[in-house]
Amino acid sequence: MMRSAIEALLYVVGEEGLTIAQLSALLNAPQEAVQAEIGALQTAYEDGDRGIHLVSLGAHIALVTKPELAPVVSRLAHVPRRMPLSQAAIETLAVIIAKQPITRVEIEHLRGVGCEKALRKLLDKQLIEEAGRMDVIGRPVLYRTTQALLRHLHIASLDDLPSWEQLEHADDD
């Protein structure tokens, strides 16, 4: 019962998604129970021959079509694609995710090249934001990631990404 109710609510609310707390309030059920049902729902979507599944958009959970169905869906409606992020922007983002809050100079040291353009692009897209200034001479701006980044990457939190320690042993392929 609760599982189908969650499915219905997520269907109606669409792209915004709902948080566990919102679902819990709407269903008058404890958050742990909602969380468990969402897990079961996702398993059913992934295991079964289904066209949709759940994604985490930061704290929000939303129903989306499965990526492998993109060719079929795009036959119905052409959805304009945004440009993928450049390699420079992606690497800059990776440094900020791993080392935030961090200054531009520190990022440039880690990447070995200038990052001003990449930083500006990430700020424009609101994937990162300023996080005050470092208390050293020159008071350089610190950068950190945003909630919008979680939404963009379809993850619940940055913990869903490999940790800095895991990356050490990451294979190249």
Binding site: E91, L93, A94, I97, A170
Partner: peptide
Amino acid sequence: YKRIKALAAVLA
């Protein structure tokens, strides 16, 4: 830098 590239690949 190797770790940064590994994370960048995941992000991409």
